[in-house]
Design a protein around this nucleic acid. Structure first.
Lengths: 234, 234
DNA sequence: TAATTAATTGTACGTATGTATAAATTATTG
DNA sequence: CAATAATTTATACATACGTACAATTAATTA
């Protein structure tokens, strides 16, 4: 790892100096959340191999072994980080899909609605949510094209993704189903790119600060809706 | 790193057992290429932090210090891996842009042509090129949303990217320039996703093998051209 | 109150890491 | 042919890594 990043201090709640022993209430959950928060930030900043268990323990204000005690080996900790918010995200998407189905009343759901409903929870969380959600969004972007990342993403996101793809294919009845999958992949890649906060869009446009993700979100919806619609034209 | 991946054997040309000493011709260049090939594959498979200098040396059939001798610290080796093919890629894109400008003769270049010319060199190399190009494409996908990756990508790709963005903005005179940058970013993200070979599209579509990148390329061009064109509509 | 369980600290182990140094060997140069 | 430069092997160093073990403390349970 590069040295400049090594000395990063996390702005956690000050590590309450804890003596060994069983805590009062069900404090275990609180500690687990602290570990997940620290791991989320470090994995997002340095990647899976770049962030060590020691880094995570130190950032959470705990000893090394506490990580293993709560989560087992490193890969399970990583999975737990992804899973925590994946469950929330997936819940929102399924809820939106159920509503859209009801509103469509048997007809196909409009493309623009499907795009909006799939992307919105992610971008809203990444832009209006706390620092944890921002870290999570950056982490998802990093994971996207790595073997371990896609394996974990598959476990937590593919089921819902397939539901949306099925609805997209229904709404684009004339289109090649594989084209629709490619379009979906492009949509997800754009979504992750917007929230990854890499600084590249700023460098390419000459902007000082990052464009508000909500603005990019509106552009994404228009852009990709148009892309999907053109797939029906033979 | 996960153990399963550790024992990977690279199908390099059998490591010619070399004695120390100055080689006959300017053999140095050949050794450098071997190192870059090995590093390219390992960085693509395991990421920057997941691939060690020892791995690279072993895969290239050399001792550890030879890597440092030729390329200096690890980050410079990484940069050299990216730079080698970035120069080729950038050359093709600039050439295509010059041709397109000449053909347009003062008028704006058609969107579909700009999309095609920017994406084509990458996807053609990744699908028709040798294993080195495929590794390079996968590596670029991994780099996309990481800090070190975007830093290096900026160094080697941003100048040409800005030229294409300027032409896109000219062709989309009525559009918000920042929307065009977002569209460009989406296009690049889709391009990288197609070539990253993560297996996700197969999982989402139920296909057995990977869809031929040329097919996805044609879809990408149609999809993103339509996306760009819709940005002019207020 | 005695036994059990949960959560933590502290330490240790074997290995892997990036980098540096020293030595060896051979082509090239003067 | 002697001197120099280039390229490699071999070894070493200090640190970092993931995981495991033992000990400690406190809440809970019977």
């Amino acid at each position: 790892m590069r040295q400049e990043l090594r000395s990063l201090k996390l702005d956690q709640t000050p590590a309450t100096v804890r003596k060994p022993g069983r805590p009062k209430g069900g404090r275990s959950g609180e500690t687990r959340e602290r570990i997940l928060d620290a791991a989320e930030q470090l994995f997002a900043d340095r990647g899976y191999d770049g962030a060590s268990i020691r880094d995570v323990a130190s950032a959470a204000g705990l000893q090394i072994h506490s990580i293993g005690y709560h989560f087992g080996p490193k890969e399970q900790l990583f999975d737990a980080v992804v899973a925590r918010r994946a469950d929330i995200m997936t819940g929102q998407r399924r809820e939106a899909l159920a509503e859209a189905r009801q509103r469509a009343g048997g007809d196909a759901i409009p493309i623009v609605q499907l795009v909006r409903d799939y992307v919105s929870p992610f971008i809203q969380s990444a832009s209006h949510g706390d620092v944890g959600w921002r870290n999570y969004a950056a982490l998802m972007g990093r994971l996207a094209n790595s073997p371990l990342g896609t394996e974990i993403i598959a476990r937590h996101y593919d089921e819902t993704a397939r539901e949306y793809i099925a609805e997209l294919q229904r709404a684009l009845a004339g289109a090649n189903p594989e084209d629709v999958v490619d379009g979906f992949s492009a949509m997800v890649a754009a979504m992750l790119g917007i929230c990854a906060a890499t600084g590249r869009p700023e460098r390419l446009s000459g902007r000082r600060a990052q464009r508000p993700p909500e603005d990019s979100f509106e552009t994404l919806v228009r852009f990709h809706t148009a892309g999907f619609l053109t797939l029906t034209i033979a």
